[in-house]
Simulated assay, not measured.
Amino acid sequence: MRLAVLADIHGNVLALDAVLEDMARRGGADLTVNLGDSVSGPLWPRETMERLEALNLPTVRGNHDRRVAVDPADETMWASDIYARQRLTPAQRDTLFAQPLILEIAPGVIAFHARPDHDEKYLLDAIVDRQLVRAPLAAIRRRLKALDPACRIALCGHSHRPELIRIPDGPVIFNPGSIGCPAYDDDTPPAHVSEQGSPHARYGIVTLGGAGQPDSFEMIAVEYDHEAAARQAEQAGRPEWAHGLRTGFMPEAARP
Rank of each mutant, 00 (worst) to 15 (best):
P90N: 08
P90W: 04
P90V: 07
Q92R: 12
Q92C: 12
Q92S: 11
Q92K: 10
Q92Y: 07
R93N: 06
D94N: 09
D94R: 15
T95H: 14
T95C: 10
T95E: 13
T95D: 11
L96C: 01
F97Q: 13
F97H: 12
A98Y: 10
A98S: 15
Q99S: 09
P100I: 11
P100C: 06
P100M: 08
L101Y: 14
L101E: 12
L101G: 15
L101I: 13
L101M: 15
I102F: 06
I102S: 11
L103T: 12
L103E: 13
E104V: 13
E104F: 13
I105Q: 05
A106V: 06
A106E: 15
A106T: 09
P107H: 02
P107T: 04
G108Q: 00
G108E: 08
G108V: 03
G108M: 05
V109P: 01
V109G: 01
I110L: 11
A111G: 10
F112M: 01
F112I: 02
H113L: 10
H113Q: 09
H113D: 08
A114C: 05
A114M: 03
A114E: 00
R115H: 03
R115F: 01
P116R: 04
D117M: 04
H118L: 01
H118I: 00
D119A: 15
D119G: 00
D119S: 12
E120D: 12
E120Y: 02
E120C: 04
K121R: 12
Y122P: 00
Y122V: 00
L123V: 04
L123I: 06
L124N: 05
L124P: 04
D125G: 02
D125S: 13
D125K: 05
D125R: 07
D125Q: 12
A126G: 06
A126P: 02
I127W: 10
I127V: 15
I127E: 09
I127H: 08
D129V: 04
D129N: 14
D129Y: 05
D129A: 12
D129G: 05
D129H: 14
D129M: 12
R130A: 13
R130H: 14
Q131P: 08
L132Y: 01
L132A: 07
L132Q: 06
V133M: 09
V133H: 11
V133F: 08
V133C: 10
V133N: 07
R134C: 04
R134I: 06
R134V: 04
A135H: 08
P136M: 12
P136L: 08
P136I: 08
P136K: 11
P136G: 14
L137P: 02
A138I: 11
A138F: 10
A138T: 12
A138C: 05
A139Q: 13
I140D: 02
I140P: 00
R141A: 04
R141N: 00
R141V: 08
R142D: 14
R142V: 10
R143E: 04
L144W: 03
L144K: 01
L144E: 04
K145M: 02
K145E: 07
A146K: 15
A146I: 09
A146Y: 14
A146H: 12
A146F: 11
L147G: 03
D148T: 03
D148Y: 05
D148P: 06
P149A: 09
P149R: 06
A150R: 15
A150D: 15
A150T: 13
A150G: 13
C151A: 14
C151M: 03
C151I: 01
I153H: 02
I153A: 07
I153F: 07
I153N: 07
